[in-house]
Design a protein around this nucleic acid. Sequence first.
DNA 1: CGTGATGAATAAGTCTGACTTTTTGTCTCC
DNA 2: GGAGACAAAAAGTCAGACTTATTCATCACG
Lengths: 233, 233
Amino acid sequence: MSTPGRGLHGHVLDTLGPEITAGEYPPGSVLRTDELAQRFDVSRSVMREAVRVLESMHLVESRRRVGVTVRPKSEWNVYDPQVIRWRLAGKDRAPQLRSLTVLRSAIEPVAAGLAARHATAEQCAELTQCALGMVANSRGHKLEQYLVHDMAFHRVILDASGNEMFARLGDVVAEVLAGRTHHDVMFEDPDPAAVTLHVQVAEAVRAGDAARAEELTREITVGALQELDILAP
Amino acid sequence: MSTPGRGLHGHVLDTLGPEITAGEYPPGSVLRTDELAQRFDVSRSVMREAVRVLESMHLVESRRRVGVTVRPKSEWNVYDPQVIRWRLAGKDRAPQLRSLTVLRSAIEPVAAGLAARHATAEQCAELTQCALGMVANSRGHKLEQYLVHDMAFHRVILDASGNEMFARLGDVVAEVLAGRTHHDVMFEDPDPAAVTLHVQVAEAVRAGDAARAEELTREITVGALQELDILAP
DNA sequence: CGTGATGAATAAGTCTGACTTTTTGTCTCC
DNA sequence: GGAGACAAAAAGTCAGACTTATTCATCACG
């Protein structure tokens, strides 16, 4: 996605990263730099750079005389967008989607409340635009177009919150929404109630009604959680 | 902190990382690998590994014929524990502490609610232990001991939530609490009301009362926010 | 027997230098 | 003034030699 062909070490990461995050090597497994270099047909220097990146994600640990050992999942930098993408593409896609949706349910209502206080006029306009776009594409199997506006809507909310930690979750939320549309859930048109809620959130933010924006957004995320529960109770 | 002496490239990161996150190089600044290698007196290979790590944190971008360009703050991986540590040690320590506290106020109440549902008997016991430890050290300038139990308390809550995304914020919250004790705020003994709240949260979790655990934790985080507001309104 | 020191094997870490590739800026030439 | 060719610059890649820390096994000593 982001920058596919950023060098040989990137290509190595594109296959080794998903393998590790998919759990193909149990925690404590030992990889050797030389072997990996051979396997991917790259020089040791390139392989070392790739290992350094995996190490900075806390996926592996490199120790002298031992090798490159895979760390337990509990130590991974699970907020790293790259790690999130790898995991969403792999086997624990479902549990990952669940935990991210729970994260959303905690973050987004608070973010919406802050947005109601801090959003600029421009952001309010953009928000309304997005909500209208969702309404316009809520019927007639226009899921792709709907998704575009849905992702934009939540990104604006997170940005407008004025909190950088929230803002940086825009990509994650977008990924979750995209995953929902393209996979498990959402076979038909989106829930009309959810669409209405988005419009109301946009209104509340414009009106500066923090409590209402927060509560409405909470309803949206509760709905998202219920969708998952229906699928896998 | 974590692993200080993990090689030459680590030493380079220890000084270059903080420099970048402190904003010493404005976005778009260009660094050259060779110059950096000279400056830190390391070989190009070591320098390249360090750059790869910075690149994986989205602090810089390396492009041929151009050099290593510093990315704008809005693109940094601000959830990377290393980045958080660098920023907390640097100039935007105060705003960073604010945004992290807001993050806490969103996450922790939800985490406490989940903990009330999912916590094991062992975790409940540990939680009570921590709360008692806080009570025991809440008077008489035992701030350090108080802090230890406070950090442990919140870590248990996040772990017991059963959500890996929440669990991985344990280190961050610990860092925020430590920062609060060792710097700006907290000159005297902790607020007795806050101590009581912690005890009550432990009780609510043990009783499986999710709504109460959530609400009580919300009061705790609101208190933390107010502390910051008093200091810098 | 256990225990601690010695030493050899191993794999990561480091350095150097040569070469390749991509990109950019410039300089023509029309 | 624009299009295309050319040259320079910096990252990217590779191969090989060397260094260093760590582990494990062996052996001597209590």
